[in-house]
């Protein structure tokens, strides 16, 4: 059996999974400085233990409406790429799942193209669907594949 470990998290109501090896850490973003003129999906920059992290808004990336009110429980998934730190802001962090890679199914053909571009496929769990997210793709600038290519 070809097992993979996935960290699960929620953006909006959807549950996503990302490969454990891709994720550097999970942190609570605080004191985020918004950057005027930057792309809408960039939530801002913040200081994480002396490093400057560029934070991305997961909802904006997926075309979801912004969170109605900030409950102070916002979390971010930290990723390191090319000596730079990035953060993906999510709504909720879940458990770590061990899943059989062979049971990964292809994206449904009618999936929203934006979602399809960041999804590696779907796992059918007992009571829900788990979309496996390609974090690199998620953080790549639209149209450019710098980060994905580097990975």
């Amino acid at each position: 059996m070809n097992e993979r470990e996935y960290v699960t998290f929620k953006i909006g109501t959807q549950v996503f999974g990302a490969s454990v090896s891709e994720i550097h850490d999970v942190f609570r973003p605080s004191n985020t400085t918004t950057v005027p003129l930057s792309a809408p999906e960039i939530a801002g920059v913040l200081n994480l233990r002396g490093r400057i992290v560029t934070a991305f808004d997961g909802r904006a990336l997926l075309g979801l409406p912004p969170k109605e009110k900030d409950d102070g429980r916002t979390l971010a998934i930290g990723v390191e790429r090319d000596g730079e730190s990035f953060g993906l802001i999510i709504d909720e962090i879940g458990e770590v799942l061990r899943l059989d890679a062979d049971s990964l199914e292809q994206n449904p053909v009618n999936l929203d193209p934006v979602w399809a571009s960041v999804s590696r496929g779907v796992h059918r769990l007992d009571n829900r669907l788990l979309v496996i997210m390609d974090i690199d793709r998620m953080l790549s600038p639209p149209g450019g594949d710098e980060i994905a290519a580097a990975a």
Binding site: V45, N47, I52, E84, E146
Partner: peptide, 27 residues
């Protein structure tokens, strides 16, 4: 001076970022 993230590089108005004494990051 900390280098600008590649994802912000296209914004010509910034040349980098820095962390201030109070811990905040500013452009």
């Amino acid at each position: 001076v900390k280098p600008l993230s590649k994802r912000l590089g296209s914004v010509a108005q910034y040349s980098g970022a820095t962390i201030l004494g109070d811990g905040a990051v500013i452009m």
